[in-house]
Design a binder for these strands. Structure first.
Lengths: 146, 146
DNA sequence: TTGAAAATGAAAGTCGTTTTCATTTAGCCC
DNA sequence: GGGCTAAATGAAAACGACTTTCATTTTCAA
């Protein structure tokens, strides 16, 4: 990793190593805060901005990408070989991943038809997971009033 | 519209009428600021929070939905009969819409397999439109340094 | 070893969003 | 039409995630 970063013009530091390692241990849909706290448990001296900057760096070198579901909190998702979409349950606020290889193929075709050059595909479905659906049936939830 | 809102327990006001009308004139990918300024051109006395609250109300009653591309700005998109996805060009920052009827069908099937109850589908592709791709070829853009 | 460039941590700044609160208004009942 | 209650409004402040600043420290190539 030190070598990998050096070729891109970045230096290795103890903080960076800890942050990178912690990120890959968490791996999926990581928020800055989550990573910050994980790192902090191992080294109380690391600052929030250092965690944030390194998360950006991880994205910059192509090892992760931002995921945005619209709740104002940016999540960082390790880049994997297999493209995947997200089911986001607004009950338990958890993600379920699913494969989108063929969907991406279709999308790429549609993009070509529109002369659009795709770089990133975001496929997200919001709804309720099995567990939360059962719960919400019992105590049907009323949306907040204004 | 007055009637429609009344059945849901909301009142009609001059401000609300103006805001609703202005929103539907703009129609697509509307930001709070855009709508605020459009409304203001017709009535200088309308407050920002009123515009914001009414935009939320439009979503609440199912006439629009939030679109989030990850730039920290929420856009509001009129709900249409035909489900559509977005190509977002990060060159000119414009959206191109495309039909996703069949894609949504496939997604719904995948959701069923995961016992997930879908409520909203977000299909977004980031990249470059035809015009911006030609431009960026000529003057190949270097990503901002840290 | 040394110097330039990069990285760090604390603090402050930014900016879109959301809430608060005093006041006004809509619309139901008589 | 008048009275009443809940909803709506506008200004301002609060919120909160994200980003930048700056003085200091550290890395690493020469």
């Amino acid at each position: 990793m030190r070598e990998f970063l050096r070729t891109k013009g970045f230096k290795m530091t103890p903080q960076r190593e800890l942050i990178f390692r912690s990120f890959f241990e968490l791996g999926e849909h990581v928020t800055v805060d989550e990573l910050y706290h994980k790192v902090r448990r191992r080294d109380r001296s690391v600052g929030y901005s250092t965690v944030w900057r390194n998360l950006k760096l991880i994205c910059h070198v192509g090892l992760a990408e931002e995921v945005n579901i619209g709740d104002g909190i940016t999540r960082y998702d390790r880049v994997t070989q297999i493209p995947h979409g997200h089911f986001y349950c607004h009950g338990c606020r958890k993600f379920i991943e699913f494969e989108v290889e063929q969907l991406v193929g279709v999308l790429a075709q549609v993009a070509r038809e529109h002369k659009f050059t795709p770089e990133e595909f975001k496929i997200e479905v919001h709804g309720l997971c099995d567990g939360c659906r059962r719960k919400s049936r019992r105590s049907s939830i009323v949306p907040a009033a204004h």
